[in-house]
Amino acid sequence: MEERTITVTTKAGITRIALNRPEVMNALNAAMRHDLTAALRDLPEETRCVVLTGTGRAFCSGQDLGDATAGLDAERILREEYEPMLAAMTEAPVPIIAAVNGAAAGAGANLALAADVVIATESASFVQAFSRIGLIPDAGGTFIIPRAVGTARAMGMMLFAEPLSAGQAAEWGLIWEAVPDAEFAAQVERRAAVLASGPTRSFLAIRKALREAAGQGMSEQLALEARLQGEMVRTADFAEGVAAFLQKRPARFSGC
């Protein structure tokens, strides 16, 4: 029987994708990378927010070291399997919340950090475990982490390969928030509902502006802001937002 590496459900505009190999702490094998990439590339039409989480006690333990396709073929796997998966994350047409329900290690940590918003249980942890087996961080870790927390903290995380608690990750600005375990599911639901009912095109433009900012000077970024804002003021959501403000009522965004 073929392994079901992820599960996908959609309700009220929220598509939930759960990594589904709990027996190996949701370690990434070739099938999971393919399935996750495909799911993100072919989201249901009604999707306005994605929640990515793990099944069982972990979010994702990283590369499955028992995967027969791994090993010395690492460069090919990173270029042909990890890069498309991470591109599908960053290019998704709707915001992605990584709901980190437990340990996120190695490539699993960096998969979570590639999301737009990371919400973790207080009992969760993030670890750049690569140096423990003589590797370097991959799956975007050397790009994402120093930009979020600075080179000094990124270097310590990667050289010492020690777990970083969710609380510390939130204090450092690596993730959005750490939530008490008992409140985690409800908080993720609340956050996802806000995004699913919000101005989808505005969210997409915000994500684009922030992602491009790191590689641009001020004048280039101001030009990008002006172009994107010019597009936003012509949307139905902008018209609805203004009307709702003037009428002193909640906005009913359509995502258009």
Rank of each mutant, 00 (worst) to 15 (best):
Asp64Ile: 02
Glu189Tyr: 01
Ala68Trp: 08
Ala154Tyr: 15
Ala68Phe: 09
Pro84Trp: 12
Ala107Lys: 14
Gly56His: 04
Val233Ser: 01
Ala236Tyr: 00
Leu43Tyr: 12
Gln128Asp: 13
Thr37Asp: 00
Met85Phe: 09
Asp73Met: 05
Leu86Thr: 09
Glu81Trp: 12
Arg252Ala: 14
Arg76Ser: 09
Asp64Tyr: 14
Phe203Ser: 10
Thr142Gly: 00
Leu86Glu: 08
Arg57Tyr: 04
Phe203Lys: 01
Gly106Tyr: 13
Glu122Met: 12
Glu23Ile: 03
Asp138Phe: 15
Asn20Cys: 12
Thr200Leu: 14
Asn101Pro: 06
Ala112Lys: 06
Lys248Asp: 09
Ala196Met: 04
Ala152Cys: 00
Glu2Met: 10
Ile17Pro: 02
Ala214Thr: 09
Gly173Leu: 04
Ala104Asp: 11
Arg190His: 06
Leu195Asn: 02
Glu122Ala: 07
Glu162Pro: 00
Arg252Val: 12
Glu177Gly: 05
Ala193Trp: 03
Leu135Asp: 13
Leu164Thr: 14
Gln216Met: 14
Thr37Arg: 08
Asp64Arg: 02
Gln216Pro: 00
Glu81Val: 01
Asp237Ile: 04
Ala129Arg: 10
Arg249Phe: 03
Pro199Thr: 09
Ala39His: 05
Pro199Gly: 03
Thr200Gln: 10
Ala205Asp: 13
Leu204Asn: 09
Glu81Ala: 09
Glu81Ile: 02
Pro180Ile: 05
Thr121Asn: 08
Gly156Lys: 04
Asn101Phe: 07
Thr69Ile: 00
Ala30Asn: 04
Leu195Lys: 01
Gly62Pro: 07
Phe238Gly: 01
Met158Asp: 06
Glu162Tyr: 06
Gly108Asp: 08
Gly54Gln: 01
Glu83Val: 15
Thr5Lys: 09
Glu91Met: 10
Arg16Met: 10
Glu2Ile: 11
Ile77Gln: 11
Asp237Pro: 02
Arg48Met: 05
Val127Gly: 00
Trp172His: 07
Leu52Met: 10
Ala226Lys: 15
Pro163Leu: 06
Thr90Ser: 13
Glu80Leu: 13
Ala129Asp: 14
Ala213Thr: 12
Arg4His: 10
Ser202Tyr: 15
Pro93Ser: 09
Gly108Pro: 12
Leu224Asn: 09
Arg234Ile: 03
Arg252Asn: 05
Pro180Met: 10
Phe245Pro: 00
Gly66His: 05
Ala178Lys: 06
Glu46His: 06
Gly167Cys: 03
Gly173Glu: 11
Asn101Arg: 11
Thr142Ser: 12
Asn101Ser: 15
Val233Ile: 15
Val188Gly: 04
